[in-house]
Every structure is written in C-alpha cells, then in structure tokens.
C-alpha cells in the first residue's frame, strides 16, 4: 500500500441526520386504533384468505387492495417463536435481557415481533398463550402495545 502506515490514525466522528417517517393512511388507522382505543386491527386479503397484522395497503403476493378489508383481531394470541436478547444497543426498547417473541393474535394469520414480559422464572415456549398489555402513555408506534405477558 502507498505511503507508510505510521501516518495513519483514526478520527472519531458521527453520521447524524434528522428524519421524519410517515406511517401512511393505512398505518395511521392501525396505530391510532391501538393508541386511542386499544384495539388491534388487521387487514384481510380476500384472495389469499390471510389476515395480516400489521396492516398494509395491498397484498404483496396477489396485489389485492386491502384498504376496505379491515378486521378486528384479538389482543390475545400465542407464541410462535422467541429469543432472549442479551446484548445491549441504544435503540432497544428496554434493558436486556428481555424476550422478543413472534406472536400470532387470535384471528390473525401472521405473527409479528414484540416484547414478552415473563414473570419471575417463567420460560417462554412455542404455543404458550399471551395477551397484550397496552401502554399507559400514548405511543405512535407498535409500542402502543407496551408488551405481551403470559396468560395465567
């Protein structure tokens, strides 16, 4: 390589810029129902016979417009997968360790990722029943559901 490596050093810096993300009309409807009514909505693709949570404007597989196919799904469901997060990063929603689970709500066909709080010593397992605990603070994202907990 050109030059002598003794000249090299490292400059500490950062990459920092402002962003504003829009959930869109479909996403907003879902998030507002979560935040204001503690209701969980899904959209159902009539062609694929699949209920999606979170919702989307169109079915990615058959391109059907789903905006007029809203359905209420339950706030309880079951664990379809999980991991225990043990490493720390600034963007994490809580102090590790915590359980990140895939949860399929009653009436939905697609599980989604969320935090699972397990009471002392309880271990998550596939198929366990869980229920949503809604945030006391108004939140404009999926954390309007604060976390899930195991059903007694």
């Amino acid at each position: 390589m050109s030059g002598e490596t003794e000249y090299a050093y490292v400059v500490e810096g950062k990459m920092a810029l402002p962003y504003q993300y829009f959930a869109g009309a479909v996403g907003s409807k879902f998030l507002i129902a979560l935040r204001d009514e503690k209701r969980i909505l899904g959209v159902r693709c009539p062609k694929c016979e699949t209920t999606f949570v979170p919702p989307r404007q169109t079915c990615e597989r058959c391109f059907s417009d789903l905006t007029s196919h809203w359905v209420d799904v339950g706030s309880s469901g079951e664990i379809t997968g999980y991991t225990v997060i043990n490493y720390k990063e600034p963007y994490q929603p809580k102090e590790p360790p915590y359980v990140l689970a895939l949860i399929k709500l009653d009436g939905a066909d697609t599980p989604f990722a969320h935090i699972l709080n397990c009471a002392d010593g309880a271990q998550p397992a596939i198929g366990m029943r869980v229920r949503a605990v809604f945030s006391k603070e108004p939140k404009d994202n999926i954390l309007a559901i604060s976390h899930f907990e195991l059903e007694p």
């Binding site: 993300y21 829009f22 959930a23 869109g24 009309a25 479909v26 404007q57 169109t58 391109f63």
Partner: peptide, 26 residues
C-alpha cells in the same frame, strides 16, 4: 407531501401503473 403513504405504498403506485400500461400482471 406524500404523508398518506409509507415508502412501499408510494412505490406500489408506480408499479401498478406500469403493469397496467404494459397490460401485464406481476
């Protein structure tokens, strides 16, 4: 100002129009 759509939804508008224009499906 396209605050009523998120990123994939914005893309989808163009994709649907292109498919219609070419008389194709995905």
């Amino acid at each position: 100002h396209r605050e009523e759509v998120n990123q994939p939804e914005l893309i989808h508008e163009a994709v649907v129009e292109a498919l219609e224009d070419a008389h194709l499906t995905m």
